[in-house]
Structures are given as structure tokens and as C-alpha cells.
Design a protein around this nucleic acid. Structure first.
Lengths: 225, 225
DNA sequence: TTTAACTTATGAAAATTTTGATAATCGAAG
DNA sequence: CTTCGATTATCAAAATTTTCATAAGTTAAA
């Protein structure tokens, strides 16, 4: 998963890059119009964070360019507090989302994840991988066409993993999504270990052809096998 | 709690009115520009649902008017699917939120509640009523300066009640907020009854000077006593 | 006023989740 | 290739939440 950060303020740029690197994204940075334009033309990104105020040209021009390339649907516009107009024009140009400075990085993080997840789930209410299929609405897991009972946390964890397949999911991200705001920065993650253990047990008993990989010091990744 | 629905499409208007009446709001309706303009000038509402396309004038004009009166911060703009421009201009005029048709009424419901709650909580992280004070961030309840331990559901329920003081809270609304999306339309609410029972027990043991009133067939209301 | 239908309250049991202690595993540094 | 510190896994116990059965209360209609 690759994120392009288009932002000239060095402090913010570094903070963003650091944060998302920790979340195990591949980060690229552009700090002016030309550089951004070039990267956009050549590479594909899973998500683009776009500041509007840039040296060398307006971020809105970049957005138009992205739109012309059909790559504008995973852009999150970041605009200065007072330039509401930018924000609005940004939206009308098809940006997926916007955020006004200053913002909490947790907020941005949530939105990035939302953008990425959207592209995974699409409109469907069922995700299938190998021999499993998960119906989000009815909260039913089928492995080899047979229902496997998951309780609430197990289901939430698995669906988050499936929505973020092959991507490394941080423990705190998982906690935030499955358990809620309160538990964001816990000092131990026993509750995750326990649920993961049981989830794995159920999956393997049902011969599900996926694996939940632990990544030392970071989190987990779900892989088809 | 009073909501003004400015909407000319009769079907939608009725659906909205009916829904929010069930949620125990007081509903007023305006189905054209003039009527809306008059009501806005005379009365105060806790939330205003504003359609942009109206007979007799644009909703955006009403929004400007509301803004000039300093009453624009609890407006939710409802715009037709394709009129993105309206949406944007609406936002720039200070509307709190917007929604494009068609929308799920549950979505609108959630946003209305959010608008109302914001005005209750403000920026504070503590709500106080009589001899209790609830710290939202640290999730601590004090009654007469002494901590009363609440477990998760109890805390969530109480904080929702406090954010919606003196307002009737539907069981399904409560379920949606405390338990999440899944349990919106349950066929029984035993889990609510159980938590309410224990919450009441803890509150009364601590001599908290509030009461959780049951409203037959509808839900609960929290009252200072 | 009484009944019938339905809603809410309550306690006990079942299921799930969280916590704590302990063991196994991993990865960096020597 | 060891060792050490830290992370992850596992089990059992504690706490919480959900479910179930039943009782009590409420409303509307006869």
C-alpha cells in the first residue's frame, strides 16, 4: 500500500510520513507542484494526501489533473483552516474526502483507512477469499459453504482483516476499529492476543485457507494461503 | 427538542416528520420558501433540516438568512443527488452538515443526533448534573466526588443519556449508539433492560440525584431529580 | 374495572470478553 | 550462535455481557 504525501510544510510532512510508515505503508513525498505532478503522472498510489497550498502551483490543479487521469477517487484534500473555498472546489473536483488544518492525525488515519477500505468492499456486502466468504450485513462466515460461528469480536476482527487483506494491520489500529476509541493506546494487548488465538483456532478447525500472520512488534496480516 | 423540516416533497416530508415524532421530537414543517423564512425568523429550533430545491426560492437563501441570524449552526442541508454545487455552497455558508438524496433515514437520524449532542457537550470533556459528573475522556463517573465504577456498557449508556438529558431516548437509538449498527432493530431488548437495571442500582446505591425514567413502549429519559 | 396484550424488570444461567500469570517465540546485540 | 529483553501465545480465572424464563407493570379496549 503506497501513499503519496503532497505537502510542503516540512514538519507536517515528516509527521505524516512517520505516522504512516509506522502503519506500514510505503510513503512517497512531494513538496512542490512540479514534483507532485510528475509522480502522479508516472505512478499509481493507493491514497494521495494533497495539500492545496503548494509552491509552484495550486493543489487544485493537481486534483484536476488527477481527475483527468481517472485517479482522483482516493485523494484526501488537506486545506488550510481558512480556505474553505478550496475545500469546496476540491470536493466538486471529485476528491474523496477533505480535512482542514489543524487536524488530529488519528482523524486523518481513519480517513485514509476508509478510503482504502472502500476500494476493497465496493458495494458488496460479501467478501470472499479462497474457501471463505464473509457476509458483512448478516454477520455470517462460511467456510466451504458451511457456517462457522464467530462471536462478535472475532467477527469484527476477521472482517477488518478481510477489508485490509495482505496489508499489515497495527495492533492499535485493530483495537481502535474493533474495540473503539477508548482503547487506542493500551499498555498491553492481551485482549487482542486472546481473540486472535480463538479466531485462528476456529479458522483452522474449519480448514479455512487463510492465515493470520503475526508481525513481531507491529501487528498482524491476513494472507490467503 | 424541536425540529423544523423544510421540504416540499410531501412523501419525504411525511416520512421525516413521522420518524422524528416517533423519536419524540416536536416537529414543524415548512413546504415553501416564504413559510420557512417566516418560521425561521420567529422561532428557534434545535435542528433544521433544509432542502435546497424549494418552491418560492432557494434553500441557500434561507441558509444565508439563518447565518445572518446566527442560527445556522444546527442546519442539515438536504440536496438532490446531482446538485453537488448546492452542497458545497451550503457547507461554505456554514451549514453543519449535508446529505444527498436519496439517503437512509437512519443516516439522517444519526446526524441529527450528532448535531444536537454537539451543542450539549460543547468542547468539554465533563458533563455535570446535580451531584454527578461524568468525565468522558477518562471514563470516570463521580457521584458526590466519589468514584463509582461503571463497566463499559453502563458508562456508554449513561453518557448517552447525559448528552441527551431530558430527551426521550428510543430503545433502538440507544442500541444503535451503545451497541453499534448491528443491533438496530432487535426483536427484544433484554440486553438493554439488564444494563438499565444495573445502572440504576449503582446510581441509587451512590445516591445519585438523577432518575432514568422508563417510557412505556418508547424508551427512557434521564431526569435530574 | 377487568381483562388481554404487550412492555419492562429481575434473577439465574450461559456465553463472551477481559485480565493475569506463565510459557514460548522472536530479533537485535554481542 | 548465545543471550537478553521484548513480544506474542496460551491457559485459567475473573468480570462483563447476553440470553432465557418468569414476574411485575402498563395501556387500551371490552
Amino acid at each position: 500500500m503506497k501513499i503519496l504525501i503532497i505537502e510542503d510544510e516540512k514538519d507536517l510532512q515528516n509527521a505524516l510520513a512517520e505516522h504512516f510508515r509506522k502503519e506500514k505503508f510505503v510513503i512517497e513525498v512531494a513538496d512542490n507542484y512540479m514534483q507532485a505532478h510528475e509522480k502522479i503522472g508516472v505512478y499509481d498510489y493507493d491514497c494521495i494526501l494533497l495539500d492545496i497550498m503548494l509552491p509552484g502551483g495550486s493543489g487544485l490543479e493537481l486534483l484536476k489533473y488527477l481527475k483527468s487521469l481517472g485517479k482522483s477517487d482516493n485523494v484526501i484534500v488537506i486545506s488550510a483552516k481558512n480556505s474553505l473555498e478550496d475545500k469546496l472546489e476540491g470536493l466538486s473536483l471529485g476528491a474523496d474526502d477533505y480535512l482542514t488544518k489543524p487536524f488530529h492525525i488519528a482523524e486523518l488515519n481513519a480517513r485514509v483507512k476508509a478510503v482504502l477500505r472502500r476500494n476493497t468492499f465496493d458495494g458488496k456486502n460479501t467478501i470472499s477469499v479462497n474457501n471463505l466468504s464473509l457476509n458483512i450485513d448478516d454477520r455470517i462466515l462460511l467456510v466451504n459453504e458451511k457456517e462457522v460461528h464467530l462471536n462478535r469480536k472475532e467477527f469484527d476482527i476477521l472482517s477488518y482483516f478481510l477489508a485490509n487483506q495482505k496489508r499489515l494491520v497495527t495492533k492499535s489500529t485493530l483495537a481502535e476499529h474493533v474495540w473503539g476509541d477508548h482503547i487506542d493506546q493500551a499498555d498491553n494487548f492481551d485482549f487482542i492476543y486472546y481473540q486472535i488465538k480463538n479466531l485462528r483456532k476456529k479458522l483452522s478447525k474449519a480448514n479455512a485457507r487463510i492465515a493470520i500472520e503475526a508481525h513481531y512488534g507491529v501487528g498482524y496480516k491476513l494472507l490467503p494461503e
